[in-house]
Design a protein around this nucleic acid. Structure first.
Lengths: 296, 296
DNA sequence: ACAGATCCATGCTCACACGGTATCGGTTCA
DNA sequence: TGAACCGATACCGTGTGAGCATGGATCTGT
């Protein structure tokens, strides 16, 4: 035969009471079934668990060892339902979070602390993905929430997380490298490092609109900001990058603010599927809906 | 209702196959009972464990958490019988070992390494007790084996572990403190530090025989050797102590060997109850009977 | 020393839980 | 739209396990 939980519970009770009668009483049982439970246990294990001393019983060494195991099994079984329920209502759980390389610099840390405030007990699992890949992963339930740039497919719910304007990154050799105040876009060269329309559609479109499609027909494309800065540094042209990237100091690259007339803000949004099965996400989404500004 | 192992096994199978039919096959079961097991589980936990997607099923977050718990429970249950059997045949286990303070100096370490050689996997639990207390503890099954001095009650089995002669401990101020060769007992003073007949009956009897009852009517009694050495050091008299204690160098105390005529050996025995229920002891006892000199 | 009490084991009966067969209802491809 | 697939449900039969009554062994008190 096989071990059963009833046998374990019976055994633990007898081992603690060292008396079948009292153990049976504790289990709301009569004594005979208990006797048979222990007998079955001893037959299954092929081990004597108790010494019958005529007056009560005594644990054998093997019985002591088995008691440890039985207690651990029952204890584990005791906490399992509560742990499962906590996971079900999102009190605990894992949030699979994706972010764009650009987004990471500006807001990832703040976003994580905000998540931590709203849903304590939930841990985050991080992946870096470009926005289109994030939407696909969201649809496939491979991630729970993404930090993406617009446009956001309407099937998803989203929330503005961060907004910043673009600044101009120029090579040190460029005429605009010297100086301090804002500059106009028209003063920049005709050479721009462009964003890849596949990897960074949003920034590509905005930049195209800012500069004009005609001048934006660039020779170099990139979707990763570090790559763009490397190209700028090599003197291949200027680039429009989010202000937060200015924190990234690169030898041979200067940043210039743009005239108010030319300034254009880019936004980053948290984005999730409203019918995700992850309760941790549900809880976070609920919190975001009710109190959008907490911890920002 | 309550959790059952069948439910856990069923749940794990379904969670791994993500398909009731295949899971049922793996469990040598048909599909309907499996459905009911999972339903019962979900009702008990008040949690949905699977998302029914029409085409197969998918674990919920809560289901994933519960799966962890279920696996741990089943794994624990898997190893329990084997661990219990090992404890039953003495392959693993605990040996509760008692020793006299005197015995500890001479043989405890060697005895433990010998036990380790004979019964690997068995751990020792140490207690210090005087011989009479050890016999009582052995009878009450509070310890498994003792290192005692004779006489050994005949209900116990025993084995000679160590034999040594007695030497004379004298205060530095004593006439015998200077010199090197063996001395005769008659040269010592009439003042002796005696062993307590309760705590150290054996040494008390031997010393009484060596010195003669008349001269052994001493004013100071002790059962612990360190105490005796302290009394010797204070100049209250001489003492007969086991040779191994000479390793204990005490300021103000000198040791002298005794004439061959006066020398008297004292023995230390391992002692255990032949019908002890501890399989680890049984295994050690069997080993001692078959091969008494291994590792000595 | 003997009678009674205590405690675990066993025989018997019965009910309920659990598994199997048959079938339903909903979803998904071709 | 029909066929195939998959999980849920209805119904029935069987075996496990609980209770009651009692046996057998050991300990206790007078």
């Amino acid at each position: 035969m096989d071990l059963s939980l009833q046998q374990l519970r019976g055994f633990v009770a007898v081992a603690e009471e060292l008396h079948y009668g009292r153990a049976a009483e504790r289990l709301n049982l009569t004594q005979p079934p208990l006797t048979r439970q222990i007998q079955g246990l001893e037959r299954t294990l092929d081990v004597r668990l108790f010494d019958r001393t005529g007056r009560g019983v005594r644990l054998t060494a093997a019985g002591g060892v088995f008691l440890e195991h039985a207690r651990r099994v029952l204890a584990l079984l005791e906490v399992a339902p509560e742990a499962t329920r906590r996971a079900a209502d999102g009190t605990t759980g894992t949030l699979r979070l994706a972010f764009t390389a650009i987004g990471a610099y500006a807001v990832l840390a703040d976003f994580l602390t905000m998540v931590g405030k709203r849903t304590p007990g939930v841990t985050a699992e991080l992946t870096e993905l470009v926005s289109p890949a994030q939407f696909e992963a969201l649809a496939n339930l491979e991630i729970d929430i993404g930090l993406v740039r617009p446009p956001i497919p309407e099937q998803f719910e989203s929330m503005l997380v961060h907004s910043e304007d673009l600044v101009l990154a120029v090579p040190a050799s460029h005429p605009l490298a010297e100086g301090d105040g804002p500059v106009a876009l028209v003063d920049a060269t005709d050479d721009y490092i462009g964003y890849s329309p596949e990897g960074s559609q949003y920034l590509h479109d905005i930049c195209a609109a800012m500069i004009g499609m005609d001048r934006y027909a660039v020779s170099q494309l990139a979707s990763q900001v570090p790559t763009m800065l490397a190209l700028v540094r090599a003197g291949l042209g200027c680039a429009l990058i989010p202000r937060s990237i200015m924190a990234m100091r690169v030898e041979g690259v200067r940043y210039r603010e743009l005239d108010a007339a030319d300034a254009h803000s880019v936004t980053l949004h948290a984005c999730w599927s409203p019918d995700s099965p992850n309760p941790a996400l549900q809880r976070l989404a609920e919190s975001l809906r009710q109190d959008p500004h907490l911890g920002t």
